[in-house]
Design a protein around this nucleic acid. Structure first.
Length: 214
DNA sequence: GAATAGATTGTCT
DNA sequence: GACAATCTATTCT
């Protein structure tokens, strides 16, 4: 039996917010970075699905930004995807241990990306907990760029994938208040390190470091 | 709470 | 061969 008032007999479940499309990423990196705070990151793997609300990001704007891997127009097999079309994943390994997820932004030939630094778990908590070896209710589950990649199963195989596809993508979400600060771990970058290109939700307990805004 | 050392490997000089 | 957009455990206070 179908219930009246719902087309095709669909249950009255909450409608899924729309997926973030290419046009969202094809804008200047600082704009995209600010807008990414609050969006929902979804990862689908053979192990299951995980979801989390993005609460902290950083913008990297090559070629002039000395903190960016694409500084000076450096184009190597690793940085190559940043020079391509917006809305693709730039994934890299740091310290031989920790994977990092970025969204490529801007336009072709413009090597920019937004690093996802922290998320607040929404769904798939037990899978995240198993992958991390950390209790599901602890902030260390996803409060860092390497931690969230481990929790979401993000690694080398995600390099260059389309973020408007069905494996790894963002969902639209209500706007939230966004605070800014200098970026973390880029002190070597001189004056560029002082730029307030880190964007975060000051009310989230999953932000990776001191929530001091500037 | 802060400071420190050690892990571990792809990437580039 | 040095280094890196980090994380964890340990050792202080």
């Amino acid at each position: 039996m179908q219930r009246a008032g719902h087309r095709n007999g669909a249950r009255p479940t909450r409608a899924e917010p729309p997926k973030v499309g290419r046009e969202f990423y094809a804008r200047p990196v600082l704009q995209v970075a600010r807008a990414m705070v609050g969006k929902v990151l979804v990862s689908r793997t053979s192990e299951g699905e995980t979801r989390g609300r993005i609460v902290e990001v950083e913008a990297y704007r090559g070629p002039e930004d000395r903190a960016a891997h694409s500084y000076g127009g450096r184009r190597t097999p690793r940085t190559d995807v940043m020079f391509g079309a917006a809305g693709h994943a730039y994934v890299f390994l740091l310290y031989g241990l920790h994977w990092h997820l970025n969204a490529v932004t801007g336009f072709e030939g413009q090597p920019e990306a937004v690093l996802v630094r922290a998320v607040e778990p929404i769904a798939g908590l037990s899978l995240m907990s198993a992958r991390r070896g950390v209790a599901a209710d602890r902030p260390e589950l996803t409060n860092g760029p390497g931690k969230l990649c481990a929790a979401f199963g993000i690694a080398a195989r995600h390099y260059g994938i389309d973020l408007t596809g069905s494996e790894l993508f963002l969902l639209e979400a209500p706007k939230v208040r966004v605070a800014r600060s200098p970026r973390i771990g880029v002190d070597y970058a001189g004056a560029w390190a002082a730029r307030p290109w880190r964007f975060f939700d000051p009310r989230s307990r999953y932000v990776s470091r001191a929530r001091r805004a500037i």
